[in-house]
Amino acid sequence: MFQINRDVLAVQLQNEVAKFIQESMELIMREELQNFLRVEHPDEENSRDGYCQRELQTRYGKIEDLNVPRDREGAFHTALFEPYSRLENWLDEAVISMYTGGMSTRDIAQFIEKMYGTKYSPTTITNITNVVLEDVHA
C-alpha cells in the first residue's frame, strides 16, 4: 500500500498556498495601481513603470519573488503592506500577544526564528512592543 509522507505533503501544501497568496496579492496590487492612476489621480502625467521584486514573510509562508507594481512618479504604495516592509503586520501583532502573555523578548525572538526562519533580535522585539504600547496609552 502506498504511504504518503506527511512532511512532503505539508511542504507541497504550504508551497501551493504561498503561490496562491502571491498571485492574489499581485492581482490586488495591479488593480490598486490602476485605480490610483485612473481614478484617484486622472489628471496627472503618471503611468506604470514595471515591477520591483521583493521578499515578504506572510502568515502563510515566505514569498520570495513578489512582483510589486510601481509608477513613474513613485507616488503609489499598496495598502497590503507598509513600504519597505518585509513582514505582514500579523507578526508584529503576534509579538505583542506573546509579550503581554509573559514571554521574554529573548524567548519571542527564538520562537519566531524557529517557526518562520525570520530573525528578530530581542531589541527589535522590545521596540515593537514599545511602539504598540505607546499607541495603546495614547
Rank of each mutant, 00 (worst) to 15 (best):
H41T: 08
A109P: 07
D7H: 04
I21G: 02
L33C: 03
N35M: 06
I63C: 09
M103A: 00
D7W: 01
N35D: 12
Y116I: 03
Q57S: 11
E93G: 06
T100Q: 04
C52S: 15
A10K: 10
E88M: 11
L33R: 08
I108C: 03
L27S: 06
L87K: 12
E26N: 03
E82P: 06
G50C: 14
N35I: 03
Q12F: 13
P69M: 15
N67H: 14
I96W: 07
F111P: 01
S85W: 09
Y99L: 06
G61H: 14
D43Q: 05
N35R: 03
R6F: 05
L80D: 01
I28H: 00
D71R: 10
I21P: 00
R48M: 09
I112R: 02
P83V: 05
E23V: 12
L56D: 03
S85F: 08
M29E: 01
W90P: 00
Q34K: 10
E26Y: 05
L56Q: 11
Q3Y: 10
L66C: 01
K62Y: 10
R70E: 15
S85K: 09
H77A: 06
E73D: 15
I112W: 00
S97G: 05
Y60C: 12
S47P: 12
E55H: 04
L87C: 07
Y116Q: 04
G101A: 00
L66K: 05
Y60R: 06
V17R: 11
E32N: 01
A18V: 12
H41K: 04
L33I: 04
R59T: 06
E23S: 12
D107G: 02
S104F: 08
D71N: 08
M25D: 01
Q53I: 10
I63Q: 12
V68F: 11
H77V: 05
H41N: 11
I4P: 04
R59N: 05
R72Q: 14
R48F: 15
L80F: 02
E26C: 02
E26G: 06
